[in-house]
Nucleic acid binder design. Structure first.
Lengths: 170, 170
DNA sequence: GCTGGATCGTAAGTATACTGTCAATTAACA
DNA sequence: TGTTAATTGACAGTATACTTACGATCCAGC
């Protein structure tokens, strides 16, 4: 006589599941970003890529993917779009014919400067419904969880990889 | 003499941004789900759709999209895949020729029963790095935030829509 | 009873996100 | 040195996620 015949299978269980909440919040976050930044033709992913290339001029695509935790295949098309928009340029590396180095163009730097206030508004809006103390608590827990789960994702974040292109001293 | 010339534009600012953390955690959550459920040919989205159809037999695609907060267009292809796998069936509604009603097949019910333990393991693993009290706090804050931001997303959750197909008493 | 507006499913087009595989190139090693 | 291993960027294929548009159908108001 099993008192718990099987899991109940209710939608409430789905709505309370971590995976569901993370997916839903990601949906909402992208939506808010796109709304605040609609004047600029940039997606959240493209924005992150621009920031990373700005911070690490001359980085190559593989290292870039590690620095922003993007899948490398996906990043290829992201780079294509940023090239098409004229925000970045790609030059072959002299010492390694496989590698192509990435730099921001003048237009890339300009759009970055213009979009940053909109991005900051978007980031603030995502947490706006919470009280300040709650926002801080949530961001603290999320940072922890993302960091501790880093290896669980298919594309772990490797922030330190970005430095390798500057002289690769092990 | 601006003491804050512009935003510094560092990767650290990106890593601490809500939008980045939500995207990253969603990546990790999907990865863990797929790992735990790799014996079953089901994605997180397909799983949620199956649960919702099981909970609301005879629901149509539009209402289903509201119940699990999926984009209506995306849901079309999700349904196609579930049909192809034989987990659901689609029948025209007698009283409205536009509508197609969705039901689980025997195989759909079976796979759901089989996969649930794996899904529960996945959900637990996502929060595993945190202490129990932290898990509870995080889920509480996420539930709140997702709920309060519901209208900010392009596809707001409308759980109550699911009931309309049962006699639509306003 | 007919027409205008709403709704349903579908489709095309874009953008992530992942799986593989592949050729070219470089590095490591026997 | 010469073969193997690893790396880089590219491609094909699948799956979400969104936009807009379109035909079919239904309903409301006239």
């Amino acid at each position: 006589m099993p008192s718990k015949p099987l899991s109940p299978i209710t939608m409430d269980a789905v709505y309370a599941a971590p995976g569901y909440l993370f997916r839903r919040m990601q949906q909402i976050a992208v939506s808010i970003f796109m709304e605040e930044c609609k004047a600029f033709d940039l997606t959240p992913v493209q924005y992150a890529a621009l920031i990373a290339i700005h911070t690490h001029p001359g980085i190559d695509a593989t290292r870039l993917s590690a620095v922003i935790a993007f899948d490398r295949s996906t990043l290829g098309s992201v780079i294509e779009r940023l090239l098409a928009k004229g925000y970045i340029e790609r030059k072959p590396a002299p010492e390694d014919k496989r590698i192509k180095l990435l730099h921001l163009t003048k237009q890339g730097v300009a759009i970055l400067r213009e979009i940053i206030p909109a991005v900051e508004r978007a980031q603030a809006r995502m947490l706006e419904p919470l009280k300040p103390a709650e926002r801080k608590a949530l961001m603290g827990l999320m940072s922890q969880l993302v960091d501790l789960n880093n290896e669980a994702s298919r594309v772990p974040l490797r922030a330190e990889d970005a430095l390798e292109h500057l002289g690769k001293a092990g």
